[in-house]
């Protein structure tokens, strides 16, 4: 299977099952309209006849020879022999955990999937006892895995920061005893940040996610304080200080775009040009289409055009020596993770679980509050291995739409929770999410092509 597309003047070909990416000229691009495996060593005469009105014959012959060379190396029309790995998708050790340290929040974001922090179950904070049990559970179920990850999530984690500190101290103690390596992350709206908290976060958290939606009018419309006033002016100086103290690395300023700001590239530029942030993520809202800010399939052309505008600007900036990272345009074409990881994706419900303030276990933070998906409890020792098995098989070869999709090794089957909520099943695809993911991948690959061309020009 190949995927070919044009963007920004580039003709791009991805060989799906090898991961090989090529920029081709128009003759090769047109030839590919008629080619599939198995390829003959010489260009078929009927193909030369068919395209001879568009390209000189010698160009077609030499372009075909180059395409055949790729095919011969297994880098074009390579076979899909990954299903064998899908059969190995069995239960894995648990190695990552989302700790819902607070089911409470001091903002009232309009699009919050967590019902303004309480996940439909009332406002509550996690105790250290629950946190301690969570660490013990993770270590106990981690098998031979050395690298363990713990994300402090909410709600707003800073509303329960003393317990965060206690849990980190306990985990640091335990990692030495068990030969583990904990990586902590935290996601915060920044309202309660103080210099002390910044310093603790910067010392202990390997990554920090700072929630902000972009331009002041956008942020303050969607992310008001409890009293209805805007949060932008309170948060921005704190985030700037935290990033400065952090050395400007290992963080994301992360916002949400909705139907109300389909010009979201301007929010990215605001982060970089006006606020000085260079690690940026602005992501599509995932919500019911009936909401006036919800995204629908009709929005896709506008969003796709905006992603392209952002990609072109990112290229222009890089050429000018200005650098910002956009989370969804980051792609590693030089190998990246192994095929098994690509099949498995986020590992929700199998390698990764979420823990509520009550000590209940869920497949991931997006499932919290859906009682039928609860997997167990830290307090009665239950852990539903049947559900774990179900998620172990929810890989891209267990999802019909994904098997035949060109983006499968970069998207890994999408978000199970979104699939469930908006397509009706973990094993089906949330179409809107798929279309946006594919567009972002096309942009990400095009950026690589453009920067490679610019580098070549400079030489």
């Amino acid at each position: 299977m190949i995927h070919k597309y044009t963007m920004n003047g580039f003709y791009i070909v991805l060989d799906v099952h090898s991961g090989s990416v090529s920029v081709v000229d128009q003759a090769a691009y047109r030839l590919l309209d008629y080619l599939s495996a198995p390829m003959e060593p010489a260009c078929p005469q009927e193909l030369l006849d068919k395209l001879s009105g568009e390209f000189p014959k010698e160009d077609l012959i030499s372009a075909y020879e180059e395409l055949y060379a790729l095919y011969d190396q297994g880098l074009l029309f390579s076979e899909d022999d990954y299903a064998q790995f899908a059969d190995k998708m069995v239960q894995s050790p648990v190695k990552a955990m989302c700790l819902h340290i607070a089911h409470d929040c001091n903002l009232r974001c309009k699009y919050c999937f967590a019902s303004t922090g309480e996940y439909g179950g009332g406002r509550k904070l996690m105790t250290f006892e629950t946190g301690r049990r969570a660490i013990d559970f993770l270590i106990e179920h981690s098998g031979s895995r050395r690298n363990l990850e713990l994300d402090f999530f909410g709600g707003e984690p800073l509303m329960n920061f003393e317990v965060v500190k206690q849990i980190v101290a306990y985990a640091r103690e335990q990692e030495k005893l068990h030969g583990k390596n904990f990586r902590f992350t935290i996601t915060t709206n920044g309202m309660l940040l103080t210099e002390d908290k910044m310093d603790f976060i910067n010392q202990e958290m390997s990554n920090v996610v700072l929630s902000l939606d972009g331009r002041k009018e956008i942020n303050d419309f969607f992310r008001p304080c409890v009293n209805g006033t805007g949060s932008y002016d309170i948060i921005v100086p704190k985030f700037q200080e935290l990033v400065k103290r952090r050395g400007g690395d290992q963080y994301y300023v992360r916002g949400t775009f909705t139907h109300k700001n389909l010009d979201f590239a301007d929010d990215v530029f605001h982060f970089y040009d006006d606020l000085g942030f260079d690690q940026i993520s602005i992501e599509p809202v995932v919500t019911d289409e009936s909401k006036d800010y919800g995204l629908t399939m009709e929005d896709i052309p506008a969003i796709a055009a905006e992603y392209e505008r952002l990609a072109k600007k990112l290229i222009q900036y890089r050429k000018e020596g200005k650098f910002f990272n956009f989370f969804h345009f980051m792609i590693d074409l030089d190998q990246g993770p192994c095929a098994i990881k690509r099949l498995r994706g986020c590992g929700c419900g199998n390698e990764y679980v979420a823990i509520t303030p009550d000590g209940d276990i869920y497949p991931c933070h997006q499932f919290v509050g859906m009682e039928e998906w609860k997997m167990g409890s830290l307090y009665d020792g239950s852990f539903d291995l049947q559900k774990k098995e179900y998620f172990a098989h929810a890989n891209i070869y267990g999802k019909e739409d994904c098997q035949k999709c060109w983006a499968k090794f970069y998207c890994s089957g999408g978000c199970n929770a979104n699939n469930l909520q908006y397509a009706g099943s973990v094993l089906k695809s949330y179409q809107l999410g798929c279309e946006l993911e594919k567009k972002r991948l096309e942009c990400a690959i095009m950026i690589k092509a453009a920067l490679a061309a610019a580098e070549e020009e400079a030489e």
Binding site: D25, A28, S62, Q335, I340, K341, R342, S412
Partner: peptide, 22 residues
């Protein structure tokens, strides 16, 4: 190669960071 420029040159240990495009 006159017509084609290839931009780049596809386990299971589970040690990589929780996420893929890693």
């Amino acid at each position: 190669m006159k017509h084609i420029k290839t931009l780049n040159k596809l386990g299971g240990c589970g040690e990589c960071q929780a996420s893929v495009a890693q």
